[in-house]
């Protein structure tokens, strides 16, 4: 019945397991992106297209780019060129590629071959989500904006370059 769901769930569990067992942080990031994509596909199958799009745009897009930036900042050194040479060997990218190809095939199958009757899945449209978000949950939106402002100020304060060498400030 729900074969696409079980395939996507298996991909999510496998790629998450690979995330916590990798040694190299960038390889773990690759697998984490695959895991997030499969969770987005599960959201899509659950009838929640809005959060599926948000999952890809914000999680797999913005937050992962932040991780890549930090890993790149910390990785400066003579060993990075040698590391780059090792990144191009096939056994590193073949795992994420296979899992992502599985997800892409599944997405194509769902888009092309499956006719869904509207009564089969109770789809929650972005309109309903928006009405709920700015209706009963408007206080939560205000609190989220405060939280984001605090995160911005905190990240700016912590990420400033020290004038003196070493020596963390109290």
């Amino acid at each position: 019945m729900n074969t696409p769901f079980y395939i996507a769930a298996a991909v999510a569990v496998i790629s998450t397991f690979m995330v916590i067992t990798r040694r190299n942080a960038v390889h773990a990031l690759l697998y984490l992106i695959v895991s997030l994509l499969s969770v987005a596909l599960i959201f899509f199958l659950l009838g929640a297209p809005f959060v599926a799009a948000l999952e890809i745009i914000i999680y797999a897009g913005a937050i992962m780019v932040l991780f890549v930036f930090v890993i790149m900042m910390l990785n400066l050194g003579p060993q990075s060129t040698e590391m780059e040479r090792r990144w191009l060997t096939p056994e590193i990218w073949v795992g994420p590629t296979i899992l992502t190809a599985l997800l892409a095939a599944e997405l194509l199958y769902v888009l092309v071959r499956v006719q869904v009757r509207p009564s089969d899945i109770n789809v929650i449209t972005p309109k309903q989500v928006g009405i709920a978000l700015l209706g009963p949950y408007v206080l939560g939106v205000e609190l989220a904006s405060l939280l984001l402002l605090a995160g911005l100020v905190g990240a700016f304060h912590l990420g400033r370059r020290e004038k003196s060498d070493g020596g963390g400030r109290a």
Binding site: F67, L147, A150, G154, A155, F156, L158
Partner: peptide, 8 residues
């Protein structure tokens, strides 16, 4: 918010 502060 958590990941920005955490990475800083």
């Amino acid at each position: 918010a958590e990941v920005s502060v955490g990475l800083a």
